[in-house]
């Protein structure tokens, strides 16, 4: 029984006291279809199509000097999407609803981009602080604003993803927790509403993964 609505996010999955909280992140390795034969199966084909699509989407945004980096962003998309989707299933811990997960995705990524940029494109990176045509009087403020907007980027990436996941799961849990105390007719309505919400959450799972990868791609394309 839930003591608190937010206890659904507690990492409490165990098998005989063996904690398996973050194992769900590794389950994506099981989901990935393996390729033994030259001709892909339906599942393989679906993955190929999806990765190709995402790769195509990211390739147009990516910096020309960093052509190979679309692989990492496509991988991030796949990883986040699998984690989001798995979290929708009952009894599976949603790792992407935790800041410890999302921030450890976004912070090293942003930090590495920044360090690389400051090392290789020092002048350009700091020239971005003052956009073209800024009046001299506004320049100090612009620098402050730009600095803040740059510094909060990993945080916004992490919070956006985690907050979306938390919100969705909270709603799902709120609806489904009325189940045990409801009548059969009410339960059927509840299930219907739940299905609608789950469809929405499935979309959100994809969209948030897409947003995360697109935004990190955009941040990476600024480094030049």
């Amino acid at each position: 029984m839930m003591t608190n609505l937010f206890s659904i996010f507690d990492p409490a999955t165990t098998i005989f006291t063996l904690p398996l909280n973050w194992m769900s992140s590794f389950m994506s390795l099981i989901i990935l279809p393996y390729t033994f034969w030259l001709i892909p199966s339906r599942t393989n084909m679906m993955w190929i199509q999806l990765t190709n699509f995402i790769n195509k989407e990211l390739k147009i945004l990516i910096n020309k000097n960093a052509k190979g980096s679309n692989i990492i962003f496509t991988t991030i998309f796949m990883f986040i999407m699998i984690n989001n989707f798995m979290g929708l299933f009952p009894y599976i811990f949603t790792s992407s609803s935790h800041m410890s997960m999302t921030l450890s995705l976004s912070l090293p990524l942003w930090m590495s981009l920044m360090i690389f940029g400051w090392m290789k494109f020092y002048n350009n990176m700091f020239a971005h602080m003052v956009p073209m045509g800024t009046p001299s009087i506004l320049m100090p403020f612009m620098v402050m604003i730009e600095s803040i907007s740059n510094l909060i980027r990993p945080g916004t990436l992490a919070i956006r993803l985690a907050a979306n996941m938390i919100a969705g799961h909270l709603l799902i849990t709120l609806i489904s927790s009325t189940g045990p105390s409801s009548s059969t007719i009410l339960i059927s309505f509840m299930v219907l509403a739940q299905i609608l919400l789950l469809s929405l959450e499935s979309a959100v799972a994809i969209i948030q993964a897409y947003v995360f990868s697109i935004l990190s791609t955009l941040y990476s394309s600024e480094i030049k």
Partner: peptide
């Protein structure tokens, strides 16, 4: 097996997947 919120989510997901 206790019918708590996860069970109803499971039922909904099962129906959704089926459809």
């Amino acid at each position: 097996y206790v019918l708590e919120h996860e069970y109803y989510t499971g039922v909904s997901i099962f129906i959704m997947a089926l459809v």
